[in-house]
Design a protein around this nucleic acid. Sequence first.
DNA 1: CTGAAAGCGCTTACAG
DNA 2: CTGAAAGCGCTTACAG
Lengths: 353, 353
Amino acid sequence: MKKSTTELKGVKEIARRANVSIATVDRVLHNRPGVSKQTKDKINEIIIELNYQPNLLAQRLASRKTIRLATLIPMGSKETSYWEAPLSGIEQAEGEINQLGIIIDKYFYDQNSSDSFTDQTKIILESNPDGVLLAPSFVEESVKFTNGCTELGIPYVLFNSDLPNNDSLSYIGPNLYQSGYLAAQLISYLISDKDKVLIVNISKEIDNRHHLLKKEEGTRAYFKDHHKPNDILKLDIKQTDYKSIEETLSETFRENDNIKVVFVTNSRVSWVARYIDESKKDVILIGFDFLKENLEYVNNGVIDFLICQKPKEQAYRGVMSLYKHLAFSLPVEKVHFMPIDIVTKVNCPYYQN
Amino acid sequence: MKKSTTELKGVKEIARRANVSIATVDRVLHNRPGVSKQTKDKINEIIIELNYQPNLLAQRLASRKTIRLATLIPMGSKETSYWEAPLSGIEQAEGEINQLGIIIDKYFYDQNSSDSFTDQTKIILESNPDGVLLAPSFVEESVKFTNGCTELGIPYVLFNSDLPNNDSLSYIGPNLYQSGYLAAQLISYLISDKDKVLIVNISKEIDNRHHLLKKEEGTRAYFKDHHKPNDILKLDIKQTDYKSIEETLSETFRENDNIKVVFVTNSRVSWVARYIDESKKDVILIGFDFLKENLEYVNNGVIDFLICQKPKEQAYRGVMSLYKHLAFSLPVEKVHFMPIDIVTKVNCPYYQN
DNA sequence: CTGAAAGCGCTTACAG
DNA sequence: CTGAAAGCGCTTACAG
């Protein structure tokens, strides 16, 4: 079969069939005003008939737009090296997409200062980025920020911890409740009915704590669901220097016997480990996060289990989903719970953070 | 400071500075012949000075080339639904990159027929794709195939199981030895010294078995490393119908008492579960893979632990690393071991395959 | 409401 | 050995 005209592709072919210019096709394609209903309908018909799919490469190239993303995470601190991992995840994603017209501006806040957080959010909103990746810490301030994003029509992705009823493009991170539940399951394998469990929440900022409480909730739920009779004690430590931690723990151990398991609800477990190591207590210790300081204690057997959730990958995925959304309008899953990994002395060398 | 000429970008700016045409710049950029040493040197100097980074979007668009990938995995079978997951991973990747000039041709082989495997590999080599994703089953035939790829200069990625000394672009999948080791650790929590452990390898094709043997090795290593005195029995089942499996197991249980743990080294664990369920044996059962048929037995408590390694994600990552390598010359990690996930009745609802 | 033309930053024949 | 020109499939002023 002979073709009367050489076959054109894309907008040109649509234009030819509709007897209009490609500019008009472009207008219809992007729902821009200034096209009569009649031609619009005709063009739309052809678009459907041809099952037209735009060439994203050409689209990005011609539009001359670079996509600007902003990321906001805690800055590294002497208290924990945790945030190095997400940062390296962001940088990895950056390396993969910076040749594709994506720019990433990285902002950092002090986890102990809600003011520093608010300051950064203001700077970000003023810079009007195309998308935001946020590791929220201060609930109220974070909500204010994400509301600001929504008003400006800036899509944002949350990772590491979630925020109450928000309209984020996606949440990527642990199911906090579930990780507490899992910790409880581990614990239940290892204790008998009369042993006591001590839950330790360590955090200076009250606001960081809803995070920790979710885990605690999960833990308690497991014991309840499985009718475990064990006593569950709980400690809220707001002074995060070692001295305070030591004192609080000493007191607790003095006043309670039969504490068989200590479950620290965040990555600060290494400080409790130090106490347990120095005081030579015989307890099972469970905590969170694959940090250098924690791994030492895993290796010498003071920490028995570390619950981890690939912080680097979380951030990497966060950037990539913004990229996919903004550059290609690809659908993004609303929630991506990271797997809950259990690291022990045995599988520790093989864990990839 | 005033610029005498308006600032140009990319090849144009290089051409201007070198006083040549952009065609010549292009030749140097791609190391094509037909440029005098002198101009070549000058241009290279400028490239370095400008730290020129090509616009990948424009590159792909102008080259008019589509990248063709071929994937080769087992076809779905009535024996196991396992391979649906990798396929859906491939399809997900396809959805994300098919607008970017990537085409994926999917090939399938019958896991019980090395001939079907060889046939498909021939077809693939003849089609001369730009990259190959392979889930190898038959070692010898697979090696022949990957050698063919290497000869033709086709990069290939292996996933699900590795091949001995190969030059693949990347391997993505479990550390088989390590997952056997982990299973042993689980087991050791749950048994006492006099209990026996039964390892069951189920596979029709001998060649599939090096896969299973690696896991067995890991398991034995753990018991050795930790000086466990337990008896470890082993069963190689080559007839994969239920009748044969039932008979073999019955016999083994008749001849041995104190079998406390049964460890099935692949996803066929549901058949053993059926036997254990029907015969009402009181043993701990451990196996592999998040399959519908296995999950039933996890939920009714017959299977205690399932070791999983995200088969969908493996395949997705495999395609994406080929894409990144071919489209953007991005570096690809030579080995990506998937995390070894432990699924129990408790965390099962939260596991994402 | 519509179209002609230039341009995004490259690659690819083709001509000399 | 080198360059002028067309083109990849879009978007974007600008003119009418």
